[in-house]
Design a protein around this nucleic acid. Structure first.
Lengths: 246, 246
DNA sequence: AACTATGTTGCGTATTATACAACATTATCG
DNA sequence: CGATAATGTTGTATAATACGCAACATAGTT
């Protein structure tokens, strides 16, 4: 289909600027795009008037402007995480037979944004759109640990196994970061064990967490390491596709 | 100077997309920009072919594309401050419950480069990448006072509380420098109070400002000193890590 | 299955972006 | 420090280009 020339040239200018450490001058742009200085000048002026570039008052050279941050913030705030992650959840549930979830951090809680149900009769149901505490769920612990959030000082108890001592949780978080996955050993709901791993995006940002939940009878201690390895493998692959370098 | 129409329209499309949660369709773009569908279609196609937008294969709706992240990465690489400051913002918001921001000086304005939103329903939203005046915001006052910039002679009034007298603002700046923090007592937006403190770098350079904003109902006069102490403590710690000796 | 809404393609026209040139301003070099 | 080179901005005429109209294609709805 048709390409709008002047818009295309503007976008090429932005691309050039992304790789120019000390900004660029009009003449350079004109050379790179093989256009006249006057055209380059007007294109840059247009970009600048919308905040996409900035002109240094002294050197007259152009750099990328602050508006870029608005856009990227918008992208980062609602990554198409869910779209990309859904096949991973399906795969997870298919391979493990347990319910898989995805959550992101939202207002200091774990917000469940997607789920694939286990085919088993005995299964864990979590409604999408609900929020869970961070300190006693596998997904929540991942979000807490890898976003390096401060440990809440009041930790509600849900079961006898819930960690309610902030200092203890702090140590627990160190361990979670070290091993790369988190567990919930009946700390939120009795009889339910969970496993989760972090999803990384661009610049190593932790976009969310993905994990599985199942009855303790099936999620035995013996199986946990193997399950964890499998989750980490799938989620790491997803992270790479999302632009993570790790 | 002359604005290149089709480039300008492309940039406006990006702006629209930054505020569209579920993407936008061609018809919507055409309506918003008051142009024909065909023109919108071609503009979007051009943006997509450069990776600035993405078209969902199913719904055909457009969203911001991954190229934006490349650009922002380039911008952020030249702002090392942001990486270090983010955890501080997270901590601030967690402790105070209010939205925290960071701003740097840019073209005589306060440029918001990062933000952590308040978990509260009633909260102050400031878009990253936008600029605010220096004389009537807490972050701006910090930048004005500690960079020892000349006081602008024309001070726009935003609320009845905005300081519009240069001489009065001059005295105010002396006070800000003396106490080490700045307040904005409904001087920019009615019902919103802010607190901010300076971030120092190597050789005592003021790199930027960090602060919180909240509704006056929660940010009461009684609480301000305590909040200010807390902000100064966090920001001073950050300054030391950034190489400040003060 | 008929209809409505939405996105894409073809095409003639005229708006608009372009290159050329002159001018203004800032670096660079002797 | 002054002459010269290099760079950025402003008119202007031309022609290329982006535009809107209309027809077509495709998807969603009742």
């Amino acid at each position: 289909m048709a390409i709008i020339q002047s818009l295309a040239r503007g976008l090429e200018i932005l691309d050039l600027l992304a790789n120019a450490d000390n900004g660029m001058g009009i003449t350079e742009f004109a050379q790179h795009l093989d256009i006249d200085k006057s055209s380059a000048s007007r294109l840059l002026h247009t970009l600048a008037s919308y905040g996409y570039t900035e002109q240094d008052a002294d050197t007259r050279r152009y750099t990328l402007g602050p508006r870029i941050l608005t856009l990227s913030n918008s992208v980062l705030n609602r990554m198409p995480l869910r779209d990309h992650a859904r096949p991973v959840l399906a795969k997870l549930t298919h391979a493990t037979g347990e319910c898989s979830h995805m959550a992101i951090l939202s207002h200091g809680k774990a917000l469940y944004i997607d789920q694939v149900e286990s085919p088993s009769i005995l299964r864990v149901e979590t409604e999408i759109g609900t929020m869970s505490p961070l300190h006693c769920t596998a997904l929540g612990k991942i979000l807490l640990a890898f976003n390096r959030l401060p440990i809440p000082q009041t930790l509600n108890s849900y079961t006898p196994r819930t960690i309610t001592n902030p200092a203890e949780l702090e140590l627990h978080m160190v361990q979670v970061r070290k091993q790369g996955y988190a567990t919930d050993d009946e700390e939120h709901v009795l009889g339910v064990r969970c496993l989760a791993a972090p999803v990384y995006g661009f610049r190593g940002r932790v976009l969310g967490a993905i994990g599985i939940s199942g009855p303790s009878g099936r999620m035995t201690y013996e199986k946990l390491p193997e399950l964890a390895d499998y989750i980490i493998e799938l989620v790491t692959d997803l992270s790479h596709r999302l632009g993570s370098m790790q």
